[in-house]
Simulated scan of single mutants.
Amino acid sequence: MLRAGGTGLRENERVETVSAELAAAPDHVADALGIEEGAQAVRRQRRYLDDKGVVAVSTSWLAGSLAEAAPELIRTERLPKMTFGLIEERTGRRAVRRRDTVTIQPVPEDVAELLDAEPGTPTLVMTNHYWDQNGDVTEYAVDYLGVGRDLSAEYDLD
Results as ranks from 00 to 15, higher is better:
94 R>A: 13
114 L>Q: 07
31 D>C: 01
64 G>V: 08
1 M>P: 10
68 E>N: 12
16 E>H: 13
41 A>N: 07
145 L>C: 05
62 L>I: 05
59 T>K: 04
73 L>E: 06
30 A>K: 01
108 P>E: 09
58 S>W: 02
34 G>I: 08
67 A>E: 02
2 L>E: 10
140 Y>R: 03
152 S>L: 11
155 Y>D: 05
33 L>T: 01
51 D>L: 12
91 T>Y: 04
78 R>D: 12
43 R>G: 04
44 R>H: 06
136 D>A: 15
149 R>H: 11
156 D>A: 15
104 I>E: 15
34 G>D: 09
81 K>D: 12
50 D>G: 08
76 T>L: 03
20 A>G: 07
17 T>V: 15
17 T>M: 03
49 L>P: 00
152 S>H: 10
38 G>M: 10
65 S>W: 11
3 R>I: 03
19 S>W: 03
61 W>H: 08
63 A>F: 00
16 E>W: 06
55 V>P: 00
144 Y>S: 04
126 M>W: 01
80 P>L: 09
111 V>C: 07
107 V>R: 00
75 R>M: 14
73 L>F: 08
95 A>Q: 13
17 T>Q: 09
49 L>T: 12
19 S>T: 13
119 P>D: 11
110 D>Y: 11
7 T>V: 05
60 S>F: 07
22 L>T: 11
122 P>D: 10
131 W>C: 02
22 L>N: 10
35 I>F: 08
129 H>L: 15
89 E>C: 03
134 N>Q: 13
128 N>G: 10
80 P>E: 11
140 Y>C: 03
4 A>R: 14
109 E>N: 09
98 R>W: 02
112 A>P: 04
105 Q>K: 15
142 V>H: 01
143 D>T: 14
56 A>L: 13
40 Q>I: 02
91 T>W: 02
37 E>Y: 00
54 V>R: 06
100 D>Q: 10
32 A>L: 05
123 T>N: 07
65 S>H: 14
92 G>C: 10
48 Y>I: 14
23 A>H: 07
25 A>T: 03
13 E>T: 09
